[in-house]
């Protein structure tokens, strides 16, 4: 019996070493939050550990772990959509106001000179630029961040994202557009 537990532990240590990176990337892209991704991956390993006896080597361990993680992600969104709180709505209203405020009464840029963010080659190798962009991402309302993040995942369809976020497709493109305006403005203001 003890031998069995020892084997199980060894097996799990190997899986943690081999699969954590991929599981984390997946969870992060799906949820856009480092902390949530860490929680979900940890829960995945713990659930897998408890259910290890049911794992009969019929599928590859990695596939098995990913299927557990996917269930955790679905649960996460289910709980999330129920608890999208007043605070989130308020944050969204504020962000909407900031975006509207970028344009004048004729719908042209209010401060055309403010657009200092020029695209240079190798800009993404610049650590300062990356950390500015990261901070700007954090300032987005959660729903916007999730929308813009999942957009760049080739393996998630727009339909699927809309379902997760509970928005219509037309509304989704509005969110993407507003999130981009927000990011661009934030970079213009904070990155020199």
């Amino acid at each position: 019996m003890e031998e069995k537990t020892k084997n199980k532990k060894q097996q799990f240590t190997a899986w943690v070493n081999d699969f954590t990176d991929d599981l984390m990337s997946w969870a992060y892209h799906k949820t856009s939050s480092k902390e949530t991704a860490e929680d979900l991956v940890q829960e995945t390993f713990l659930s897998a550990y408890n259910a290890f006896d049911n794992f009969k080597n019929e599928s590859a361990p990695k596939t098995w772990l990913f299927s557990i993680l996917n269930h955790k992600i679905i649960d996460f969104y289910r709980k999330k959509s129920k608890s999208l709180s007043i605070a989130d709505n308020k944050q969204e209203d504020e962000a909407n106001n900031r975006v509207n405020d970028l344009f004048d009464e004729k719908d042209n840029w209010k401060n055309p000179k403010e657009h200092s963010f020029e695209v240079e080659e190798h800009l993404l190798d610049n650590a300062d630029f990356n950390s500015t962009l990261e901070k700007c991402m954090e300032n987005l309302p959660e729903k916007w961040r999730m929308a813009i993040h999942s957009k760049y995942l080739t393996d998630v369809t727009v339909d699927e994202i809309c379902k997760q976020l509970e928005v219509s497709i037309a509304n989704y493109w509005q969110i993407i557009h507003r999130a981009k305006l927000h990011l661009k403005n934030c970079i213009d203001k904070n990155w020199k």
Partner: peptide, 10 residues
């Protein structure tokens, strides 16, 4: 912005 998002690692 697109390539930044594609390359972000958690």
């Amino acid at each position: 912005i697109a390539s930044f998002l594609k390359n972000t690692q958690p």
